[in-house]
Design a protein around this nucleic acid. Structure first.
Lengths: 119, 119
DNA sequence: CTAATACTTAACCCGATGGTTAAGTCTCAG
DNA sequence: CTGAGACTTAACCATCGGGTTAAGTATTAG
């Protein structure tokens, strides 16, 4: 069931790379279980376009769909995002380092008595 | 200079959706400032293919290139990743919730303490 | 039963992506 | 000066992604 892990990241990041898809997820974040037509309503694109986005999100394991009568309700699954964050956190020390450098730079300027340097 | 923020996320996530690109970043994580040909060597694709990946990474603001003589050195810029993480963390409570449910399930057999459990 | 509602599927467009090979530029060693 | 090394650019190709319109399938309200 490992499903190549790398493939999971591929699909997760790809799914997140589209603003419409991120907006759909955001909607499912504030209200779980939303029907497809309600999900689609705010967007200026056709329903089939939204369907495709939902397909992508489902393939990435970021949502599930559940049919009830003629309506289909979607809900968010956050776990793949967590894995994405886990991958990204590998670089945390890196941006901390850069932040530290910035902090050091800013703090060095505190006493304005020394000679001014530029750039 | 805001560059639409949403566009930044688009490009960051898109850049991260390719395993070759993630591997390139990983390489730049363990060793900063690596030449293009050295970066390319481990991969079974042509140099121009790697060049295109580097273009994507640069457009996403994830690397910089610096020419020295006839070689070009690349280095990682982690900040866009940090913004990606910031976006993803919006869903943190979501996977915590799911984790809590799991925790509750596991701890069901223990005497229910009224006191707040550990954060 | 009929018709509206809520999706779903199919067929098509077109620009972006990831790869190729081939040729071009620039730099440095000899 | 010449040639090898390190990119860079160009041209091309196949597939994918995001969008469309149009038609099809269930379900359910009347």
């Amino acid at each position: 069931m490992v499903k190549s892990q790398t493939l999971v990241l591929d699909r997760t990041f790809a799914a997140l790379s589209d603003p419409t898809r991120r907006a759909l997820l955001a909607r499912l974040d504030e209200e779980d279980s939303v029907s497809i037509s309600e999900l689609a309503r705010p967007f200026p694109v056709s329903l089939p376009a939204i369907m495709k986005h939902l397909d992508v999100l489902e393939d990435a394991g970021l949502i599930t769909r559940e049919k009830t009568g003629r309506t289909v309700n979607c809900q968010l699954i956050a776990q793949p995002m967590q894995e994405a964050v886990a991958w990204l956190n590998r670089y945390e020390r890196f941006w901390n380092k850069q932040l530290d450098r910035l902090t050091a730079f800013v703090e060095r300027d505190q006493p304005p008595t020394k000679k001014a340097r530029k750039k």
